[in-house]
């Protein structure tokens, strides 16, 4: 199987869906309200091929020593490297009881991948500030399910770390989008997905951010990372 070139994926693994969200119980209702900070939908096949960004332009936004982006890219495979520019939707208001703690709100990330091989999928996420790692999280996807001719891997409702929750909250206190974007210029996340048994690198996704104009909701562009 070969994937069309309009989304994050290789012949071994494809990102189908990615959401970072906050969820809370409504006072009036029994159902939960979910607000998505960022979201990648399953991509329609009619999308044009991805533009390329030279990976050297963003080396310094991620750790540079001991398994940083440069080392990872040198090891390859190059077709497994992608960049996502998110315009995050921060247009939700914190409730009074949530100002001191999470107040019962749940901050999480859910993602879904698919591919032709049944493997144990591990995901390392590095949160970086000024290119330096501040938090690292290692997760293993649920065992894959065979669905419609391919294996589907899920990491559902993975809790956001305290650093990220506090970061989002502090960002929201800034009065202007320009100020938020200025802070976000030095905030990045690097995700590396591997076959846990062989340690083969399957996908490496670099995330960079701005804040969405509030009426638009979360948006994104996806790029291939390359090097001439």
């Amino acid at each position: 199987t070969s994937w069309p070139g309009s989304h994050i994926g290789t012949e071994t693994l494809r990102l189908v869906e990615f959401t970072a969200f906050v969820e809370r119980q409504s006072e009036r209702d029994t159902c939960k309200q979910q607000h998505r900070f960022v979201h990648i939908d399953p991509t329609p096949t009619s999308e044009p091929p991805l533009e390329m960004v030279d990976v050297r332009q963003i080396y310094d936004k991620f750790p540079e020593k001991g398994g940083g982006l440069r080392d990872l890219y040198d090891q390859g495979p190059p077709q497994a490297f992608f960049l996502v520019k998110f315009w995050a939707d921060l247009s939700f208001s914190l409730l009074e009881e949530e100002l001191g703690g999470t107040g019962g709100a749940f901050y999480g990330v859910s993602s879904r991948y698919e591919g032709p091989r049944a493997l144990t999928l591990s995901c390392t996420s590095k949160v970086c500030s000024f290119g330096k790692q501040v938090v690292e999280k290692l997760e293993t996807a649920e065992p894959p399910h065979w669905e419609d001719g391919r294996f589907v891997f899920r990491m559902q409702r993975s809790p956001l770390c305290e650093y990220l929750i506090n970061f989002i909250r502090k960002l929201q206190t800034l009065p202007e989008k320009l100020m938020m974007d200025s802070v976000l210029e030095n905030f990045t996340i690097l995700q590396v997905l591997r076959d846990q048994e062989t340690q083969e690198l399957l996908l490496c996704v670099a995330f960079v951010f701005e804040v969405s104009a509030s009426e638009r909701g979360a948006q994104h562009h996806i790029y291939r990372l390359g090097r001439d």
């Binding site: 533009e51 315009w87 562009h221």
Partner: peptide, 24 residues
Amino acid sequence: ARPDQVPMRKRQLPASFWEEPRPA
């Protein structure tokens, strides 16, 4: 200048990098 002293706006990035997509 070191790369980390160069603002993102001055780097060689596609024009689309600065254009927030319209909602589908």
